[in-house]
Write a protein that binds this DNA or RNA. Structure first.
Lengths: 345, 345
DNA sequence: TTGAAAGCGTTACCAT
DNA sequence: ATGGTAACGCTTTCAA
């Protein structure tokens, strides 16, 4: 059996109380004692049992992330990794751990209830909110501290959120393509009920309208952002009478399918057609001659993860405080690369 | 305050003992009683407090994953998501939760010690082993149950592992390119000290040698599998006097950089050059005319995650049992697509 | 078939 | 500045 508080205190000839206090930095313990305790603890590699500590303090020091299996591909989405990477960074700073629970789609609601009932977490982060997301009401009702990454159009009650300005990002990306001379710009978007997808679409439409360009609904495709989806939609659009000359892809993963379809069609990227998408930090390309155009929001997502996590911890520490929110501008990098848009055809 | 065992038992006019037994399926409780207890529990939404339960049973019902921050980009790697997705599926089946701990690179060892000392997890999964990975000895020494995803060449002591046959996969991919007529095949590999990278390289070399093709070291590049890396190496190789006609990329992410560099160079994929990489399930492309060639190992990785998790749980339940191991063949899909390799040039 | 009570390893309150 | 002890919420042993 490993060392515990009782053994450690016996070893030191002190009470458990004093040892505990010394280790937790309580001011009333004599400095000499604290030092002695600290050294003994180090020597024996003592760490308080987290279950016991949690039971005694009532805090789990754990943040929950619930992943519906339909969003399974989300975990595969680099953006998910970026977000989680940022969040875990913040958790580590405050001594929190991060827990993932995978649930069947129809069990998501009970998953939150259980997390709370089991007292397994001190709070949760809500990822990928849909329009009118019912989970927000549920969590408010449960009184489980949470912060949403993104927003949920239609929800009227208060909630804390951190979001990237998706609308503005896609507006700018679209404007950029228009500036390059493109007129037939396709949008490969995420599932329509996802809040971010709506905002991105709004940005796209807003840019087109501002420039007086007709919106062609057949150039707007929305579904789960898989590679297959990107491929099929692009293939179909390239077979149209007037195919798009540029494609704005809502996800790095679906963009892979987009590019595959372009390859298959025998077209050359950047000459016959332009693709613009979320991407890694591509500043390394900036000085290149034939730099592809792109938006770089991945680093913004990472930062969002950090901010969401901090906000959540803040809310856990100060329960009952009014909802907070924070809007982030995406770090956009729009490079010129594709030359003028293909004419006519 | 939420419902707990005490309140529930008072509500029922039974002892905590009986209620606990009823809920945990002990045989000695009368069926009528069990039913009554079960209904009341459902009604009040009672769930045992996981900290208290863990403290009483000595089991955390939690599996740990330690992520060194240098491997941070790993989380962004789709393969990481696939693996974790598979693992969490298995965890859920057995009632385990999944915990991530992010650590500074130099703190990784103490992270495991702490996880054990705090009794925060029942076992851990070791991901991304290097050659001669010191963590294996550490975990054996600590007696913390673990299973390695991958193997570690050079480690002589026993350990449980699940691995995909990386060597054979890359051997077959290389053979396939050779069959298409390619002679100058580049390998964009992961960090040399990673065990999987060595095995992949071995497979690549083995195929070249079997066909009597000279190995050109300048066509072999190895580093962290980022997009930037894939881009830079490809750009450099394309500027060589005798550039490669095919590129075998060890990661989907670096392959994105590879393709970017090819675009920049004004080359057309599948005509001027072929790229083959790990990828999603691309069976959807099978019937296409200009199907790109590829290997599909992502589904294998997912399955590996599931198997690793099951093996770990098995080991947690039966401590002291001899190490187990399991080798998986990657589900390879090698489609013909690129036509003959570019001649001369 | 049921119950009382002793743990599990902490923290925190109340004394001293 | 230190110690005794209750409490946290559950499981499990021992009795009945």
């Amino acid at each position: 059996m490993s060392i515990n508080l009782k053994k450690l205190s016996e070893e030191l000839g002190l009470s458990q109380t004093t040892v505990s206090r010394a280790l937790n930095g309580y001011p009333e313990v004599k400095e000499a004692t604290r030092l002695r305790v600290q050294q003994a603890a180090d020597k024996f590699g003592y760490r308080p049992n987290s279950r016991a500590k949690g039971l005694a303090t009532g805090r789990a020091m754990m943040i929950g992330h619930v992943i519906p299996s339909s969003t399974q591909h989300e975990m595969v989405n680099p953006v998910f990794g970026d977000f989680v990477g940022g969040a875990s960074e913040a958790y580590a700073r405050y001594g929190y751990d991060m827990m993932f629970t995978r649930v069947q789609d129809d069990t998501e609601e009970s998953a939150y209830r259980e997390l709370l009932a089991k007292r397994a977490v001190d709070g949760v982060i809500l990822q990928g909110p849909s329009v009118n997301d019912p989970r927000i009401h549920l969590l408010n009702e449960l009184g489980l501290p949470f912060v949403v990454h993104g927003r949920s159009t239609g929800v009227t009650e208060g909630y804390s959120w951190v979001d990237v300005n998706n609308k503005r990002s896609f507006e700018r990306a679209t404007e950029f393509l228009i500036d390059l001379g493109h007129r037939r710009i396709a949008l490969i978007n995420g599932l329509e009920q996802m809040d971010f997808a709506q905002r991105r679409r709004d940005g796209y439409l807003s840019a087109l309208k501002a420039r007086g360009i007709d919106v062609d609904p057949s150039l707007m495709r929305a579904d789960e952002m898989t590679e297959v989806f990107g491929h099929h939609q692009t293939r179909d659009m390239l077979r149209m009478e007037k195919p798009p000359t540029a494609i704005l892809a809502s996800s790095m993963i679906s963009a892979i399918g987009v590019r595959r379809a372009i390859e298959e069609a025998g077209l050359t990227m950047g000459r016959d057609i332009s693709v613009i998408t979320h991407d890694d930090d591509l500043s390394y390309l900036k000085n290149g001659q034939d730099v592809p155009i792109f938006t770089a929001t991945r680093s913004s997502v990472r930062k969002a993860g950090e901010i969401v996590a901090e906000m959540l911890i803040e809310r856990i520490h100060n329960p009952g405080q009014a909802p907070l929110s924070r809007m982030l501008e995406a770090e956009l990098v729009l490079g010129r690369s594709t030359g003028p848009a293909p004419q006519g055809k």
